[in-house]
Simulated scan of single mutants.
Amino acid sequence: MSIEIKAVKRDVKGTGASRRLRRAGNVPGVIYGGEQPAVSIELDHKELFMQFRHEAFHASILSLVLDGKAESVLLRDYQLHPVRNTIQHIDFQRVSATEKIHVKVPFHFTNEEAAPGVKLGGGNISHIQTEADISCLAKDLPEFIEVDLGNLEVGHSIHLSEIKLPKGIEFVQLAHGDDTAVATILKPRGGEAAATEAEETPAAE
Rank of each mutant, 00 (worst) to 15 (best):
Q173F: 11
T180P: 00
T180E: 11
P188H: 14
F171Y: 08
P188M: 07
E170V: 04
I169C: 01
D179F: 08
T184H: 10
A193H: 02
I185Q: 11
A193K: 15
G191L: 15
L165H: 09
A181H: 03
L186F: 02
P188F: 14
A183L: 02
T180V: 04
T180Q: 07
K167M: 04
S161H: 02
G190I: 06
A175H: 03
D179A: 05
E170T: 07
H176T: 08
E170K: 06
Q173D: 15
K164Q: 13
E192T: 14
G190Y: 06
T184Y: 08
D178V: 03
I185F: 11
V182F: 06
V172G: 01
L165V: 01
S161R: 07
D179T: 02
K187Y: 07
K167Q: 06
I169G: 02
L160P: 10
K187T: 07
A183G: 07
P188E: 10
Q173P: 12
A183Y: 03
D179C: 10
I185W: 04
D178N: 14
K164D: 12
P188S: 06
I185R: 03
H176Q: 15
T180D: 09
A183T: 03
A181K: 11
A175W: 00
Q173C: 03
A193R: 14
P188I: 14
P188G: 02
A183V: 04
R189Q: 14
L160G: 00
D179K: 11
L186A: 09
H176E: 14
L160I: 12
T184E: 11
P188A: 13
S161V: 09
H176I: 06
R189H: 10
P166L: 10
L174Y: 14
E170G: 05
